Simulated assay, not measured.
Amino acid sequence: MARTSIATVAIGAILVSGLLGANAAQAAQINAFLIPEHDEGYAKFMGLKFIQIKYPQGSDVANVFDGVNQKIEFTVPLTAEQLQQVNRALLESNSPMQLANANVTYSGTIRGSHDTLTLAYRTELDALVSGYVLNRSDNSTETILVDSNWRGFVIEGPVIVDAEQHGQVNVNEPIGLLQAAFPEFAQKLMDANSETKAIMTEPILDFGDIGRMPLERWHILFDPTISQASVKGVINTDIGRAKVLSVYSLGECSIREGCPEPREADSTASIDGSDLRVHISTPQPNAQIEIAGYTTLETKPENGDLEVIGVNLDQQGTVGPPLFTMQVLLILGGMMGAVAIIVLYKARK
């Protein structure tokens, strides 16, 4: 029994520290704050990829990239057409969620040496969201049903934005960075072979790995103090009648889930008489979803296996604090009692 209590405390501490560190830019990442009572919220979707291209020293390709250190970085609002493209991708993932007032922040880095070209990409979408509530209720005792399929959407194809000083930039495919900075070489890569083209057109805004991880395997924390809310000042933080914040976290390693896996792919290409090796890597996914209200995992029969989150504003159906909170309080109480006994024992000696 003592071993179980100590293990529970340790796991709880790891879980909380993981949640506090979830904002680190480690991977394809989602940070979202949802207020189901108002069917509104804020979400940040970030895609991150790295490409390494190896070429022979002294080759024509080496002569182009040796010593290059270039960065393209900007933030622009999405146009109505681009916003429609994103919302269409959400609908294709069987989610009713829609984005509005969205900005895209893009950062692409090109670094070359005598034998290696390194490309790094980060594309972020920041947006107000709505439409994810599946039923409407004015009664705080009724369960609000919330869609969760949006967390796995993928934007296929180029997303081309107008960036001041950089012209038109494709922010959703790795080839876009080279098309903006080295268009001739970019075209040669695209013409090389199908495997290389597939790598260079792989979507950056791809959250499929996050969507494929069942919510029951995410870490869940109930925060009655609302201290975990990470978007204060971004949207109206009035969470209405909700008395607790539910925090879903993905990305920490654990005994049960292990560690989310990164994705990698390789190809070869012959350009200007040189054999190139192309390697792409996508780090493991990371996500934190905060929902105003006490949540349970449910499934609507008409949705088949699609996951639906039930939200109660006043924790109806529960007695006292959520189970996780009760466990922590009881364990801490037991620890304090044990400390008190030790102190009294030592005082009497």
Rank of each mutant, 00 (worst) to 15 (best):
S254G: 12
I271M: 06
P224F: 01
V244I: 09
S267R: 08
T268M: 12
P260F: 02
E261S: 13
V231A: 11
M213D: 13
E264A: 11
R212K: 14
G211F: 03
G251C: 10
V244E: 00
R217F: 13
S230I: 09
I199D: 04
R241C: 04
R217S: 15
L250R: 07
I239K: 02
P260T: 10
L245Q: 02
I226H: 15
P262H: 07
P260V: 05
I204S: 02
E202V: 06
I235Q: 04
A269L: 08
N236C: 11
S227H: 03
G233T: 02
E264L: 08
G240A: 07
S246W: 04
A265T: 11
L221T: 08
R256I: 09
L215T: 09
I199W: 04
G211V: 06
W218E: 08
G258Y: 00
V231L: 07
D275Y: 12
C253P: 06
D209M: 11
E264W: 06
I210L: 14
P203G: 10
P260L: 06
R256Q: 12
L245A: 09
D209Q: 14
I220G: 01
R263G: 08
A265K: 12
L245D: 01
I210N: 05
M213T: 15
S246L: 08
P214C: 13
V231P: 00
S227Y: 02
P224E: 01
E216L: 12
P224Y: 01
E264T: 12
N236Y: 13
M213W: 03
A269Q: 03
S227Q: 08
V231R: 06
I204M: 11
I210V: 15
K232I: 08
D223A: 09
A265Y: 08
I239L: 14
A242Y: 00
E202F: 07
D206R: 01
C259S: 09
V234H: 11
I199Y: 05
I226K: 12
I204Y: 06
T225D: 02
E252Y: 04
P224H: 05
G211M: 06
V244K: 00
D266S: 15
I235K: 03
P262Y: 04
L205A: 14
L250K: 04
I255R: 03
T268D: 07
D272G: 00
S227N: 10
R241E: 10
A242R: 00
G240H: 01
S230G: 11
G240W: 01
L215C: 11
M213Y: 04
Y248K: 00
F207A: 10
P214Y: 13
I235A: 05
S246Y: 05
R263P: 05
L215Q: 05
A229S: 08
G273K: 15
P262W: 01
S227M: 07
C259N: 03
K243L: 00
V247N: 03
P224L: 03
S249E: 09
A269P: 00
